[in-house]
């Protein structure tokens, strides 16, 4: 369970899912297609995950599998996982997958996440050490947030290793004060 104050966790839970209402609800304006503020039982509504999750626990809605885990994505990941643009599908592909998997009746999501991550991980690390700075931004555009974090971790560990080997000034201007100058690398 992520921390209550976790910024990323809050953003993940804003992800929109489509849910089918099992029970009617009145006095709420969440269904843009209905003209009144009444949601009929059986209607399909797009709601954020935080709401769908709690309502599912009370058996008021059932969540449908989000489009980012559909058959098309799966086929693409099987074909060449490293080139699939996961970012445009969902910037928190893995974390969101972990949250949604126990709620929808689909046992294959876990396996999909694991196999996608394993095969992409290798590519991310290799690119982090070899890609030129100019090419990196193009590559970034298809990574999920988790993968970008890994990418940066790989690069910064290499940079601090170099810095340790070469030596350099210990004190630097605090990084909050504008861009840090390129340190001696």
């Amino acid at each position: 369970m992520a921390s209550y104050y976790d910024i990323n966790d809050i953003i993940i839970e804003e992800e929109i899912v489509s849910a089918t209402f099992q029970k009617a609800a009145s006095g709420v304006g969440i269904d843009p297609s209905s003209e009144t503020d009444y949601v009929e039982a059986g209607s399909k509504v797009e709601i954020p995950f935080w709401l769908a999750h709690e309502l599912q626990l009370r058996q008021a809605v059932s969540i449908n599998v989000p489009p980012c885990f559909n058959q098309k994505t799966r086929l693409e990941i099987q074909a060449d996982s490293a080139c699939v643009d996961l970012r445009s599908r969902c910037p928190f592909f893995y974390e969101f997958g972990c949250k949604i998997a126990p709620l929808v009746n689909d046992r294959t999501i876990g396996f999909l996440l694991l196999s996608a991550f394993k095969s992409r991980y290798k590519e991310v690390l290799t690119k982090a050490h070899t890609a030129a700075f100019a090419a990196a931004s193009k590559f970034w555009a298809i990574l999920t947030n988790e993968e970008i974090y890994l990418y940066q971790a790989a690069q910064s560990s290499m940079a601090s290793f170099k810095k340790w080997r070469m030596g350099g000034p210990r004190f630097q201007k605090a990084s909050v004060l504008g861009r840090k100058r390129k340190s001696t690398e």
Partner: peptide, 14 residues
């Protein structure tokens, strides 16, 4: 557990 209950629940969760 009627429609009003679920409406109130949604407001509470929000």
């Amino acid at each position: 557990r009627n429609a009003d209950h679920y409406g109130a629940l949604i407001h509470h969760l929000s």
